[in-house]
Write a protein that binds this DNA or RNA. Structure first.
Length: 437
RNA sequence: GGACGGAUGGCAGAGCGGUUGAAUGCGACGGUCUUGAAAACCGUUAGGCGGGUAACCCCCGUCUCGGGGGUUCGAAUCCCCCUCCGUCCUCCA
């Protein structure tokens, strides 16, 4: 949700920024402004009537007392008159309020449809800003001298998608043996690394109410990607970002508590509707996967720095895993509704001979916080507490387990089909070598 | 699944039909005192929306005591529904 006051102050600037997301996005803003106008013309009239009703209501007691001196019949008549007089503005206010309610409902709905203002530095089209190969054997001249296998060949029966399909349908997997140990090592290693960066590990609920999806901007927009449990009015989250963002919904945080950083570890569920034809096989695109997600609540002025910081952590994880990657500044017309700016880290997949998305981090500025009503109380230079303001939120993938396993298997495969697991994971219980045969 | 009890400001906790947006305590902020700090004392301190302002301070109005609806001239206070929390029973990994 955007800052209404800022929109009213500079509608043209906001419209221009929104148009960068694509033709017609500015029109949604105009709809909001128009409804805001109507709302504000109705509101004062309702409030004036209510003020009058209150005044009269307060006088009732005194007027009623005066009636005590009158004969009963006359008093009854007067009493009825007083009541009618007191009721009049309230009744009028009520009918106007009904009108206002309709306008406000439309207004709120329209406001939810306006995406975040993109950051000026969000790229016009996907732009590679950095490529880090660590001298990968796949990317040096000539390659390692053998044909890379894909992750399914490398994992053999450690990944069983046929039987998973029998159980649950396509795009599900059984993960077995050494790969399970690899996942657990990966998760534990990442959580300990993040712990050193101030991120508190969290295992959140993955079944959430609609409000959490609305608050994070996944609704209304990506409903076709979300699993629903209609019998219980719950949704399965596609990322723990949803649960982490809601952690401080409705709260006013002390500025001294900020930044608050969380590392959520949870399964993620995605319907992948529309991806039916996608050629990705194996673990790359599945309906259920585990992920460690970073999430930060910061002062708005710190959001850009935090975004860079989160990106740096993602890069550091890839570096420690000795995975070749490139960083992409994602095109402005490809941003989700909440994001003002987004970086993807794409990893090299030797079997495909191309870069594929592995992690991603977004600066959602105050967009989610406004919807979730997550605020903080700023202090001025003298340390005096001020009015609550929306915090800024950011999120980034620490490790998407399935895809990370793919990247490790493929990049660290050896000619004999075994895989040398990166040293960083050894101390966390990962096998040093995984061999499918 | 069943039976009770509860939900009030940053937190704790009164109020149970009429200046109650809300006592009191804690916290926070300001001040007095002090070499400084602590203690003590005094004062200030909820949020949303709209208007007066181009904007801040400030002022005015209105809404909000978990959410929604109702009764009433008037509801934090009475009634109904929902959500959540606690306790007990039942069940259960």
């Amino acid at each position: 949700m955007l800052d209404l006051k800022a929109l009213r102050a500079d509608p043209d600037g906001a419209r221009a920024a929104l148009e960068r997301r694509g033709e017609g996005t500015g029109a949604r803003l105009d709809r909001v402004l128009e409804l805001d106008e109507r709302r504000r013309s109705l509101l004062p009239r309702v409030e004036d009537l209510r003020a009058e009703a209150k005044r009269r209501s307060k006088d009732v007691g005194a007027k009623m007392k005066e009636l005590g001196a009158l004969p009963p019949e006359q008093a009854a008549e007067q009493r009825a008159q007083i009541t009618a007089w007191a009721k009049e503005p309230a009744v009028e206010a009520e009918s106007l309020r009904a009108e206002l309610e309709v306008v406000e409902a439309e207004f709120n709905e329209a406001l939810l449809l306006v995406p975040n203002l993109p950051d000026p530095t969000a790229a016009p089209e996907d732009t590679v800003i950095r490529e880090v190969t660590h001298g990968s054997k796949w990317l040096v001249e000539g390659g390692p001298g053998f044909e890379p296998k894909d992750h399914l060949e490398l994992s053999g029966d450690l990944v069983d998608m046929e039987r998973a399909a029998r159980l649950s349908g396509s795009r599900f997997a059984y993960l077995k043996g050494d790969l399970v140990m690899l996942e657990l090592a990966l998760v534990q290693w990442v959580l300990s690394k993040l712990g050193g960066q101030g991120f508190t590990p969290v295992i959140p609920p993955v079944l959430v109410r609609e409000q959490a999806l609305l608050g994070t901007g996944f609704l209304p927009d990506t409903e076709q990607q979300i699993y629903t449990l209609p019998a219980d009015d719950l949704y399965l989250v596609g990322t723990s970002e949803v649960a982490l963002a809601s952690l401080h919904a409705g709260e006013i945080l002390d500025v001294d508590e900020l930044p608050l950083r969380y590392a959520g570890y949870s399964p993620c569920f995605r319907r992948e509707a529309g991806a039916a034809g996608a050629a990705d096989k194996g673990l790359f695109r599945v309906h259920q996967f585990d992920k460690v997600e970073m999430f930060a609540f910061v002062e708005p002025s710190m959001a850009k720095d935090e975004h860079e910081r989160i990106l740096a952590i993602e890069e550091s994880i890839l570096t420690d895993l000795e995975l070749p990657y490139q960083v992409v500044n994602i095109a402005v017309d490809d941003l989700g509704p909440s994001a003002a700016k987004k970086f993807d880290c794409e990893v090299w997949l030797p079997s495909q001979g191309r870069w594929r998305e592995l992690t991603s981090c977004s600066n959602t500025t105050e967009f989610q916080a406004r919807r979730l009503d997550a605020r903080y109380r700023p202090k001025d230079e003298d340390g005096k507490p001020g009015k609550p303001e929306a915090v800024a939120t950011l999120n980034g993938t620490a490790t998407a387990v399935g895809r990370t396993i793919i990247a490790i298997l493929e990049n660290h495969q050896q000619e004999d089909g075994s895989v040398a697991i990166p040293a960083a994971l050894h101390a966390f219980g990962a096998p040093k070598v995984i061999s499918a045969s």
